[in-house]
Design a protein around this nucleic acid. Structure first.
Lengths: 208, 208
DNA sequence: CTAACGTTTGTCCAATCGGTCAAAATTTGC
DNA sequence: GCAAATTTTGACCGATTGGACAAACGTTAG
């Protein structure tokens, strides 16, 4: 027996930890880290503060767990890009996947946006390491497509930035998007409209 | 004499209020409203907390003043769009102006982003009122251009969103952009690269 | 010089926050 | 059914926070 071995978690522990993380995602994504209190999270999770602190040793601990989980799923769409398919189809698919993530996981998007806005204090090494090399790798693939004349010559890095920006906008700036579109066009259909628009923009631009 | 008349402010009052607002913009834009303390702002402004509270009656007061000022200048570029010039040139100019604002006023951009991320609690009426009608008006102009065959037919509202998203990305997600571009390409030249890329994207898209 | 006015500061307060702790309540293994 | 382990809670603590206040300090006009 290893002295440092962790006893395997109870079924209740697994459930409650999941419940807390979900509540914390709600609270952190709308109030930021410093704007959120343990009481708020405990409240949203339907338990008392000391009880919550029985499952996570600190507010930092909850936040770190959320960020770590987020990053695993967040970069998955980018990983899927490879150079076996048709380049334009591949990029269209990437844009669609990113837009679906903005629609289905807006809280995760806002949590990430909050972290970056504050200067990425907790994930800076990851941005400069894992994220940079992943983007560099995909930029290399895209450069190959340009050399082969499959897509127009342009800057692959800024292309990736523009895809991130346009898709995450629909999660991070959701209230503004809905306010501007108004009650008529701001409903669920806005994501379909966005998908159609973005496909046209990225493929053909505005020139008539 | 009106009993409620405000005595006109001293020159010192004008100076100090300006100093405080500048310091507060620094602090609020990097820490968010709840993440910022009056002490931090007072420190950044080089004065004591009670002294700061002599010029602004509360933390809310400082923030509200900043937001109000921000909005005046923030929508200026959109106001400038009209249908007397060439449509493609007009849109190119708008994109360039917005990108310059991201470069020259990143703190204002992040302050705005923070506010929207938290659900725009303080400016919701403005989004649904002034902003919506302004965007509707410009969308109408753009629709005219499309009818005239001057630019490709697409959704004007989402077009505006995509311009906001791509340009503000370079202010709000600056740390991520710099981390991914690395020390070589992440210098000041990144805005020129972005300008070139965005012009090509919005004009011609990726199709070869 | 001095009275009136504008500015600055030290001290204080109540509320909130993250986190602790021991005791009580509950669940689990046998 | 019962003892051990797990879970939940109420009470509490020190630190931080937004803000109040009166006293002190400076400045300026007569």
């Amino acid at each position: 027996m290893d002295a440092a071995a962790k006893p395997r978690p109870t079924r209740i522990q697994v459930q409650k930890r999941e419940l807390i993380l979900d509540a914390a995602l709600d609270v952190f994504s709308t109030n930021g880290f410093r704007g959120s209190t343990i009481d708020q999270i405990a409240d949203a999770a339907g338990m008392s503060k000391p009880n919550l602190l029985y499952y996570f040793k600190s507010k930092e601990d909850i936040h770190a767990t959320l960020i770590q989980r987020l990053l695993e799923t967040w970069l998955a769409p980018l990983h899927e890009i490879d150079d076996i398919g048709d380049p334009l189809t591949e990029l269209k698919a990437y844009i669609r996947r990113k837009l679906e993530m903005a629609r289905d996981y807006p809280r995760e998007s806002r949590l990430f946006a909050n972290e970056i806005l504050q200067g990425a204090p907790r994930i800076m090494p990851l941005l400069e390491g894992e994220l940079k090399s992943l983007v560099d790798e995909k930029a290399h693939i895209i450069k190959g497509w340009m050399r082969d004349g499959k897509i127009a010559r342009t800057d692959p890095w800024h292309l990736i930035f523009s895809i991130w920006a346009t898709t995450q906008h629909y999660a991070d700036f959701d209230v503004q998007v809905r306010a501007v579109l108004g009650p008529d066009r701001g409903g669920e259909g806005r994501f379909d409209d966005a998908a159609r628009f973005l496909e046209q923009l990225f493929l053909d631009g505005l020139r008539p």
